[in-house]
Computed example of a mutant assay.
Amino acid sequence: MPPRRPRPCACQGAMTGRPGPDGAFPVLVLGVGTIGSGWGAWFSHRGLPVCLVDPGREPAAMQDAVAARLGQLRQSDIPGAEAAGDVTVAKSLRALPEGVGFVQENATESLDAKQALLRELEAILPPWTVIASSTTSLKASDIQAGCRHPERVLVGHPFNPPHLLPLVEVVAGHQTDDAAVGWAMDFYRAVGKFPVRVRKEVTGHVANRLTSALFREAVHLLAEGVATAAELDDVLTHGPGLRWALQGPWLTYHLGGGAGGIAAYLEHLGDTHPARWADLGEPELNDGVRRMIVEQVLAAYGSRPVPEWTGERDRQLEALLALKRIADPPT
């Protein structure tokens, strides 16, 4: 894959119509499943008008899903606008409100489906409107291929649940204009998110690659009988998981070196890592392993329905976010 080269916009005259990233323009949320409903609630919580479009879902179901998450936000201490933005449903992309200033696309994880939606969008929206895809693992370069205005297409990947977790990974494609990336970063900051620009396109971006590495080893340890699913969760939530909410791997090991920092850590303990890396598992997710995972997860958590666990997770995340607002130094 060749390195990404900044691509100047092919329509500089039309670019002047792009609103400021902190404007009160309508936001189009395209695809209103778990991720899209969370995005819709968040944008509304921050005071932006939101238009929902998802031909595969009933309007009332979309409204209810967004309203449930929005109600959670409005009752929380998570900063938002004094008045929530209106949430409306359009039957199709041909019925959008005027002045849509940003698109958050959350369609099914299919390259063909996303490309088809972008072709339809390009026939409706002005060329300056930034389009961000919530894709988990597809690349912006592939999504924007075939677009008439690929310079405004990028990845804006949230972490689930998007109405609570601040992270958004912003990834440019080979044809994405740097001005569009900068605008998207400013927009996400303006609506209270924590955008991180990923410097190179890779499958799964950054956060999901890290979590996939951990999940792979968790599968290996479970399959080998080293620990049960419940025990693996306990190890993380009562140990490194607590620290990870405050500091990532590099600060962790920098502090692990004591007064000498990361250099001292690498000098004294760095050589212990290759031995562990060499012993990490490469499990097969075959039928037998899948059955083992399902059996153990249900044994640990099957006594309560998933929505109850989801509600408890969200309440715990709200409490953790409140603590982080107190503990994190201002930037």
Rank of each mutant, 00 (worst) to 15 (best):
H163W: 04
G101F: 05
A123R: 08
G182A: 14
D186T: 07
L111N: 05
G192A: 09
Y188V: 00
K193C: 14
G156D: 15
P127N: 01
N160M: 13
F159Q: 11
S137P: 01
A116G: 04
V191H: 02
Y188L: 10
A113W: 00
T135Y: 05
A107Q: 04
A207R: 02
I143A: 13
A190N: 07
K114L: 09
T135E: 02
S133G: 01
P97R: 08
S212T: 14
L167M: 13
R199A: 14
A179K: 12
L214M: 15
T203N: 03
W183F: 08
P126F: 06
D177V: 14
R209H: 01
I131P: 11
A145K: 12
V191N: 07
A184W: 03
A172E: 04
A113Q: 07
V191A: 04
D142M: 11
H174A: 15
P126E: 06
I143H: 07
A113M: 03
A213P: 11
P127T: 03
S137C: 10
R189L: 14
A116Y: 01
V191R: 08
R209Y: 03
S133Y: 01
V202N: 00
V191I: 15
D178A: 15
V198I: 13
G146A: 05
K114Q: 02
N106L: 09
P127A: 09
P195L: 14
L117N: 06
A107H: 09
T176S: 15
E217R: 03
P166E: 05
V196D: 01
Q144R: 09
K193F: 11
P158D: 08
A213N: 10
A207P: 01
R189V: 08
D178S: 14
H163T: 06
G99L: 15
V155C: 13
A132R: 04
K200W: 10
E98S: 12
P97G: 08
T176A: 08
L164I: 03
F102Y: 15
A107V: 07
G173V: 02
A113T: 09
P127F: 01
G99C: 13
R152E: 03
W183P: 06
K193G: 06
Y188Q: 05
T135V: 03
H157F: 14
V130R: 07
Y188F: 15
A213S: 12
E151S: 13
I131C: 06
A207K: 00
L210V: 11
N106T: 14
A179G: 12
W183Q: 08
K139P: 01
S212M: 10
I124D: 00
K193V: 02
H174N: 10
H205V: 02
R197D: 01
H205P: 01
Q115S: 02
P195Q: 04
F215K: 04
H149G: 04
L210C: 04
T203C: 00
A180C: 14
L121Y: 14
A140N: 00
T108F: 13
P150R: 09
F215I: 13
L138V: 00
R199H: 09
S141I: 07
E201P: 00
V171T: 08
S110F: 09
M185W: 11
V196S: 05
A207Q: 09
A145H: 11
R119H: 10
R148P: 01
F102K: 12
A179R: 13
P97D: 07
K114E: 10
P127M: 06
K193E: 12
Q104D: 11
